[in-house]
Amino acid sequence: MDTRYTYYPGCSLHATGIAYDKSMRAVFKKLGSELAELEDWNCCGATAYMSVQKTVAFAVSARNLALAEKTGDDVVAPCSACYYALKHTREGMAADPELRAQVEEALAAGGLEADLSVEVRHPLEVLLTDIGIPRLVEAQTNSLEQFRPACYYGCQIVRPFGAVDEDPELPMSMENLFTALGARPVDYPPKVRCCGGMLVATMPEVATELSMDLVDWAVAREANCIVTVCPLCQSNLDLINVTTGGNGASHQIPVLYFTQLIGLAIGCTPEEVGMQHALIPSDAHAPPLRGAPLTIAGSREG
């Protein structure tokens, strides 16, 4: 089993998504897999570059693939936008010889070449496929029974590629994972809806509506936390609590990364998985949304 990966954190995981970075590293370390950060990686281009210049968007993203090919390990990209951009670059170049020739010429100007040999993967799929639920359950030290997560997948990891979960309309991989770890995921119909993404800056009224809807659904389904796979989703949903101002207890719902929840289950400390960076606290010291306090202590029997 290949237990070494090239880690592509992306820009957000060095700033607003720092808790995702910490929990990624903590979980992979605990499971004995090596995450080697890609040396001198650059921005993936996200959705913004594609709006301006197409070939440049591909070339910027392809530099990362070219650098990653030096080790040959699969690239793990936790941010949905990075995952999509890198995968789209790889698939787009493979499908379009003219584009590939142009991108290769651009890379050659920087002394690089890309043979598209490395796979681009999302950590959710890596943890479920390479590690697998049985091994995660085996590694479990703490119960997640206090958690009633609304599992939120968002957009770009489930579509258009559909490599993370076999059903792009109704993914269940996180639900299956967290049920196995003792949590009680709620039925969450808007799990693949858009959080608004960068519209939070450019058209806040539209983005707020989308994010608020996701929070309202989670509250209505009596979830006590929302679990996300993307730093932008996490920021948008977490900030709703702050930006809409004084909305009372009804929207104080913690928004966690799936890796934080896994980390807590397999014995990482709350600090190790970056719980201190959440705007809405969900650790043992703060009351969660309605109902019983969330505790992350309480080890599993035996």
Partner: peptide, 19 residues
């Protein structure tokens, strides 16, 4: 800031000619 920003700029400059 990435270390090899010059490399990235060269790649971008070349790619821009196609756009």
């Amino acid at each position: 800031k990435i270390k090899d920003i010059e490399q990235l700029r060269k790649i971008i400059a070349k790619a821009e000619t196609f756009d």
